[in-house]
Design a protein around this nucleic acid. Structure first.
Length: 826
RNA sequence: GCUGGAGUGGUGAAAUUGGUAUACACGCCGGUCUCAAAAACCGGUGGCCUAAACAGCCGUGAGGGUUCGACUCCCUCCUCCAGCACCA
């Protein structure tokens, strides 16, 4: 049969149906095989799959199929992260029901995934908007509530005016909404939070155990959690003796403190200014700052605003009275909301002090400019140096002084060594319809009452009006809102906020282990067998959000005693973006390449091969319309090879006698197996694995077999079979078809054994030794592989070309790298 | 500013971790086949230098260093990408 797109389409369809009908990739617990759980980040079903999905899932599929062939019991599931705003926006725009819109998108996605030939266990498929799934979201929430890890509080929250809902800190990117890019505002609201900060220490510490995660993801999470060591220092207000605690990571500069600054929202402010002569001005200032959004406050950049409260604080180390100021550059939600200002050694304090003409005091000497005076400073001195003006600590190196002064303060009870975190609790309330209802009821008598477990799930009411205005649409569904209190049976109101969708995706990998279990969130035994995920693959955009939340949930489940491990994902690969014309593919830029059209022209296997071959998986991938022709051509050549050169009758047995050419050919076969196996095992280097198969292909092409030479034909056949097996994870439909043509014993190539190589066959009889003279390449000599160093030296020195270079100069050194090169130093 | 990463042919990228720089592919050039084109196949392809081969010289962002030998290690600098950012 000729290699045509028509033929390819027929083959791909045939095998997709075969895999589906035979449940080829159904995963079950087996005792006799090691397990391997490979997982991609499940998609948001917004329509058809795009190139980013194709890349992500192709990479994952190769790992899954490779592990299957290696004899692992592989779990490779797929599902949909199906709650979220696009469904609701579609409802507002087109009047469709979010549920039917979502399920119709899911069916499009499923079709796209099937066409790529991915090896999923479809029996475990679910969508997070299935009530069988979100029931367990509610169950988890109730468990957290029980343990005080879910709580409601009123505070300023990130508010997206365009999505008309709140956002978690992690969802705010550059002060913009991560989804719609609208400027985020601050709003004072009563909202549900998850106490992820209770896990700060473990989330940070356990990063150390994730040695198979990309270093940048570790760094990003570590920065995000943001642990700072320092000292809480207790100042006191001069007249009232009211304590005023500041946090600093630089206790070494305490003697340089010339004023103290509170955040305008600081709870002490009211007391401080009451009755003072500038009370009115200060109140005006606070109002002004409060009205500003975080964005405006930050966009001021270096320009800092502040006001003097009229009060003074006593610095406990020297009993000096320093003025207490308020300033917009001090944030209430970090540290203690109050700082000691050391303008000589902190650039922000320096700018502020210059602006408001506050005094400076140098307490660390610049080693290069010892005689520097305060009024000569052009910027804060922030480098290392010896302490001055610091009483008994004078002369001490400031880095060493950090610890010394900290413990001295602790002894004298004027400060306390402390740790502060950047991580905040996770705001999960969303004022939207298409999400998991938060399972609590507000009763005028009993207060906040959790929905009893037996009443779960709290179902989302169907067929409701969504306008996008006036807050959560659920507020207007009377049957949903007005309910009897579970405790006193009196009339009560149901919570109408839904959960952030990142809640749904924080534990879906556990649900796959027992996706059809109706009685439990997941089956402990199944989870113990499959988890943790051995290889997780997805986009870098989830480096903080999803991966941090999932780690938090996993630790929570461990604390519940449901699992025994601390981390959900052993190995993580973050695949690069797919670009076109040096830009990320996106609808708005109009540079998307539709996978469907490519499949239609080249077939799924060519697409898979191109995507894997064009770049390492972590790197960005530049789409190239003509490079995919190369993938097509390569498969075409393999196809023709089987069509014209392979002769089934000759079998696959390696003859006992091999001539020189045969041995070299066998060496390439074994070397290719070794290279592909290593590339797939160690670093997921698909591009170099494929290139080595191409080299192998070129060698097979050159290997001459005459029609009557059954011996050589068997050697060739063996190589063709090896190549088919090596190709199977990359181009599964194509390989299944070849495998049939080759008369493969097993039903499918997917569960055939991965080929093994013979170390002895890798040895070469003769090798090429490179001769360098003074490090420069001068000659290449063929010698037998087992030549002794002494013999080689004689051989090299007798070579005519080498002689010409050496002439009569003495050879000072003879360096020999066995099997590779010699270097003569003359 | 801090953190993480990257700079190699016309292009995507290799390089056994200190040992032949540019594998494999795309593109381009030439050829075979064809009335012609496409497809397919074969050959060439870092730069300079001679008509060409040989030989030679240069060449992995820049400059220095270590070494018999550096894309790889060290120092200084430049550029780009990503994340965080008034976090005290």
């Amino acid at each position: 049969m000729p290699y045509t797109i028509h033929e390819i389409k027929r083959i791909e369809k045939k095998w997709q149906e075969f895999w589906r009908d035979n449940k080829t990739f159904k995963a079950e617990i087996f005792g006799d095989k090691p397990k391997y759980y490979v997982l991609e980040m499940f998609p948001y079903p917004s329509g058809k799959i795009h190139m980013g999905h194709v890349r992500n899932y192709t990479i994952t599929d190769v790992v899954a199929r490779f592990k299957m062939m290696q004899g692992f019991n592989v779990l490779h599931p797929m599902g949909y992260d199906a709650f979220g705003q696009p469904a609701e926006n579609a409802a507002i725009k087109r009047g469709v029901d979010p549920s039917s819109w979502t399920y119709s998108c899911i069916s499009d996605m499923r079709e796209g995934l099937t066409k790529m030939g991915f090896s999923y266990d479809w029996d475990r498929e679910f969508a997070t908007c299935d009530k069988e799934y979100y029931k367990w979201n509610q169950w988890i929430f109730l468990k957290m509530l029980e343990r005080g890890l879910a709580y409601k509080k009123s505070s300023f929250v990130n508010w997206c005016p365009s999505c008309d809902t709140t956002l978690a800190n992690e969802e705010v990117i550059n002060e913009e909404c991560w989804r719609c890019k609208a400027k985020v505002e601050q709003k004072d609201l009563d909202q549900w939070y998850l106490k992820i900060t209770a896990y700060s220490e473990r989330l940070l510490d356990d990063l150390k155990t994730l040695d198979k995660w990309p270093s940048r993801v570790i760094a990003m999470q570590s920065n995000w959690i943001g642990k700072s060591f320092g000292v809480d220092i207790c100042f006191r207000e001069k007249d009232t003796n009211e304590p005023l605690t500041v946090f600093t990571t630089r206790p070494d500069t305490i003697f340089g403190c010339t004023y103290v600054v509170l955040a305008p929202e600081h709870p002490l402010v009211d007391k401080l200014i009451k009755g003072s002569k500038n009370e009115q001005d200060v109140r005006q200032f606070i109002d002004k700052v409060k009205k500003e959004s975080k964005t405006e406050r930050a966009s001021a950049g270096n320009k800092k605003q502040g006001i003097f409260t009229g009060r003074y604080a006593i610095n406990p180390v020297n009993n000096e009275a320093v003025p207490i100021w308020l300033a917009d550059y001090v944030l209430m939600d970090y540290g203690t909301g109050a700082i000691m200002a050391v303008p000589a050694h902190d650039q922000r304090d320096f700018i502020f002090a210059k602006e408001y003409k506050l005094p400076l005091r140098i307490v660390i000497e610049d080693p290069k400019r010892r005689d520097l005076k305060e009024n000569e400073l052009e910027q804060a001195f922030v480098d290392e140096g010896a302490l001055v003006n610091s009483k008994q600590f004078d002369g001490l190196n400031n880095i060493k002084a950090i610890e010394k002064i900290g413990s001295w303060m602790e002894e004298d009870k004027i400060g306390k060594v402390s740790v502060h975190w950047r991580l905040r609790d996770w705001l999960i309330s969303r004022q939207r319809y298409w999400g998991t209802p938060i399972p609590v009821i507000y009763c005028p008598k009993c207060g906040t009452v959790p929905v009893p477990e037996k009443d779960l799930p709290v179902e989302l009411p169907a067929k409701i009006r969504i306008t996008g205005e006036g807050g959560s649409p659920l507020n207007y569904v009377k049957e949903f809102v007005i309910v009897p209190c579970p405790e006193c049976k009196g009339e009560a109101r149901r919570e109408t906020d839904t959960m952030a969708t990142f809640f749904d995706s924080s534990w879906y990998f556990l649900r796959y282990c027992s996706a059809r279990n109706g009685a439990q969130v997941f089956d402990k035994k199944e989870a113990a067998y499959w988890m943790p995920v051995d290889q997780y693959i997805g986009g870098i955009e989830h480096a903080i959000l999803h991966l941090l939340y999932s780690r938090f949930f996993t630790k929570f489940f461990k604390d519940l005693g449901m699992i025994a491990f601390d981390e959900p994902f052993t190995r993580l690969l973050t695949q690069g973006m797919v670009l076109k014309d040096a830009e990320v593919m996106s609808k708005s830029k109009g540079n998307v390449v539709d996978p469907d059209l490519i499949i239609d022209k080249y077939g799924a296997d060519s697409l898979r091969l191109f995507i894997l071959f064009a770049a390492p998986p972590e790197d960005q991938l530049e789409w190239n319309d003509s490079a995919i022709d190369g993938s097509w051509r390569f498969l075409n050549r393999v196809w023709n090879l089987v069509e014209y050169k392979f002769k089934k009758e000759a079998g696959f047995n390696l003859p006992s006698e091999l001539d020189k050419e045969d041995k070299e050919f066998e060496r390439i076969r074994n070397a290719t197996i070794k290279k592909v196996t290593e590339d797939l095992s160690v670093g997921l280097k698909f591009n170099t694995a494929i290139s080595s198969i191409m080299i192998f292909m070129n060698a097979i092409d050159k290997y001459k077999v005459t029609d009557d030479d059954a011996r050589k034909q068997a050697i060739l056949n063996l190589s063709v079979r090896t190549m088919t097996l090596l190709l199977a994870p990359f181009v599964p439909h194509f390989s299944e078809e070849l495998w049939q043509a080759l008369g493969g014993k097993e039903k499918t190539v997917a569960f055939s054994l991965w080929p093994e190589y013979n170390e002895a066959s890798l040895a070469q009889e003769s090798i090429q030794v490179v001769v360098q003279i003074n490090g420069k390449l001068r000659a290449k000599l063929d010698v037998s592989a087992d030549i002794s160093e002494e013999k080689l030296k004689q051989f090299v020195l007798s070579d005519g070309k080498v002689k010409d270079f050496i002439q009569d100069k003495p050879v000072r050194k003879f360096i020999y790298v066995p099997g590779k090169l010699v270097n003569l130093v003359i």
